[in-house]
Design a protein around this nucleic acid. Sequence first.
DNA 1: GGATGAATACTCGGATATTTATTGTCCGAGTCATCCTGG
DNA 2: CCAGGATGACTCGGACAATAAATATCCGAGTATTCATCC
Lengths: 164, 164
Amino acid sequence: MKLSEGVEWGLHCVAILAMLPPGATLPTKALAEYHDLSETYLAKHLQALTNARIIESLPGPKGGYRLQRAPEDITMLEVVEAIDGREPSFRCTEIRQRGPLALEPAAYGVPCPIHIAMARADKAWHEALRAQTIADLLSQSQPHAGAQQLRKSEQWIAGRMRRT
Amino acid sequence: MKLSEGVEWGLHCVAILAMLPPGATLPTKALAEYHDLSETYLAKHLQALTNARIIESLPGPKGGYRLQRAPEDITMLEVVEAIDGREPSFRCTEIRQRGPLALEPAAYGVPCPIHIAMARADKAWHEALRAQTIADLLSQSQPHAGAQQLRKSEQWIAGRMRRT
DNA sequence: GGATGAATACTCGGATATTTATTGTCCGAGTCATCCTGG
DNA sequence: CCAGGATGACTCGGACAATAAATATCCGAGTATTCATCC
């Protein structure tokens, strides 16, 4: 059970976009350069985030991406699901209904205990990510990176962002 | 993030083996027939469960598999990890240390907030599965399947198991 | 000099190859039971 | 009739293909800017 590599990229990029002034945008090229990522592959993931209504794109020169909502209103779960998909990790294929001892389907009204337990674990995972917003990430990263590093990042971003 | 199909197979098979009398074994062929699974592919997963010290194998005619511990001492997490692997779902590749704004590695003593949050979600998922044992699964499936169905299963198994 | 028009450069969006992991299969090593032979 | 040995059949174990998914890339559609031209 491994998560797509793009999830890490997406989370970091959304965090960067959250640092922009309201309305300003940043193109794919800048986002890719910031962390030295493949520009074309990152574009694919940004597209997924756009479809999920997390970020929005402005075409043309001076175009780029920006958040569609406030960082406080975007959960990590949304970003993860936008890129990795919304399917549960465990898909019960009901193998108990197969084989020589199978009953008629009506006899299996309740999901099997294995399915229930796996769904409970999945729910715990989802809740943990739903409880964490992008704004939380920013407030937590601030103490880690020094104030000078933060200034440096903001300057770098300011040199490439486009104001409305 | 999807879980291997074999996880479902493994959990069901371990549950079946837990129904056997102490010491008795059941060969791969019977386990595969019970749920109409690919015998050869199931063998691969049973092998993984053997390496994880969850089940043990007896070779030769009258051989087969049996649990290596009591059902109360086998957690769902163990079975899942034996088949799907023990790697965490999210692998932080530290992309924050890449790109034009990267600092010297010593400056990144603390994991990034994204890594922390994902690890916390992973932990919640693991704990949920660690709290559920194979014995719990059996006690929960009993009320679902009727008593007659249970008897039917036990008879089917009794006809194919090997006593020591 | 100002306004209008076309050309241009840059953006995102979806369709297309390549690599990796998962799924699925096969054959060989080892072991116990059975059968045959000899006493 | 009993004991011993060789044979045979069945088991698991690891190495080997086929398929699906994730990874990575390319080219086309659209838009705001820019420049040249005309009024």
